[in-house]
Design a protein around this nucleic acid. Structure first.
Length: 103
DNA sequence: AACCTAATCACTA
DNA sequence: TAGTGATTAGGTT
């Protein structure tokens, strides 16, 4: 429970207009459980308070969302991020490293 | 350069 | 205890 709880807390700390990666998130928790992060987010116990859409892959791509590696859900996520101030170039984030929230 | 495979960690049933 | 997953990195073609 510590791992997931940490993930939630960190994610809530991410300000609007910023994004984070699974790797950074995992490293912030102390483990490199990239996949575990996704697992925890998938469960998403506090969806409205946890911006899972601000979590992207390490290379800047969205990676996946809501169990869909690609498709309409991804577009939905992109729209949300654009609304937050994040710009998307195809499936990649523009100035991703610049907008990456560092813990 | 692009694609595919294997490895790794935590969580759920 | 065993299986799964919203990934990542590396090697191969």
């Amino acid at each position: 429970m510590k791992f997931s709880d940490k993930i939630y807390t960190l994610l809530k700390k991410v300000p609007i207009g910023k994004v984070t990666t699974y790797k950074e998130l995992a490293h912030a928790t102390g483990c490199d459980a990239y996949r575990a992060v996704g697992q925890v987010l998938k469960k998403n116990p506090d969806a409205p308070n946890i911006p899972c859409h601000r979590v992207v892959a390490t290379n800047g791509t969205i990676g996946g969302f809501n169990g869909f590696k690609t498709g309409p859900n991804i577009d939905r996520k992109k729209s949300m991020l654009e609304h937050e101030g994040i710009v998307f170039d195809g499936d990649k984030v523009v100035d991703f490293e610049k907008k990456l929230y560092k813990f």
